[in-house]
Amino acid sequence: MREIQLPLEKSLVKELTVGEELRLNGTIYVGRDQAHQRLTRLIENSEALPFELKGNIIYYMGPSPTPEGRVIGSAGPTTAGRMDPFTPALLDRGLTAMIGKGNRNQSVYDAIIRNGAVFLYAFGGCGALYSDKITSSEVLAFDDLGPEAIYKLKVKDFPVLVAIDCRGNNIFK
């Protein structure tokens, strides 16, 4: 088990190996289907993005409503494969890691190796557990998308496994 202080430096990504369990601490960004489509449009139109991709992590997630007295509702990962068409362009612009569940397609896999990035697996279905690991949450962009908005989260002891490391070793193979 390895404790990671975010942001995740590319030099540290090189040390990570498939199957290794990590605990993330720091800031991550949340985006899923609709947010990815919009980010891609912004990139195509050379417009400013709501957050810096370089050195950052996107978590594929759409939370349930926040109960009173909590930071966020249930907040586990969604299927990563749906974001495959959008991901290589984000990796090529400096995104360091993605967090989700399930395997990626060949073009994402290639883009991970090409950019020295990493794909992290979050425990699928464990929304209540992840809710407990999030210490702050704010909507950063695309508020109109509700649970599909882009959120900025602070996380503590956020458990993930290294699923595809920067050398292309894949836990799902």
């Binding site: 369990e21 997630m61 759409g62 939370p63 349930s64 109960p67 909590r70 509702g73 249930s74 907040a75 586990g76 969604t78 425990f123 279905g125 464990c126 929304g127 209540a128 557990l129 809710s131 407990d132 649970p147 458990p159 496994l161």
Partner: peptide, 24 residues
């Protein structure tokens, strides 16, 4: 490790009365 996190998750959901998965 996946299975252990699943059982931890179930216990947190039950104790705190929040959906065990965000996809309800």
């Amino acid at each position: 490790s996946v299975l252990k996190h699943i059982t931890d998750n179930l216990s947190i959901a039950g104790k705190k009365h929040i959906p065990l998965c965000q996809d309800t």
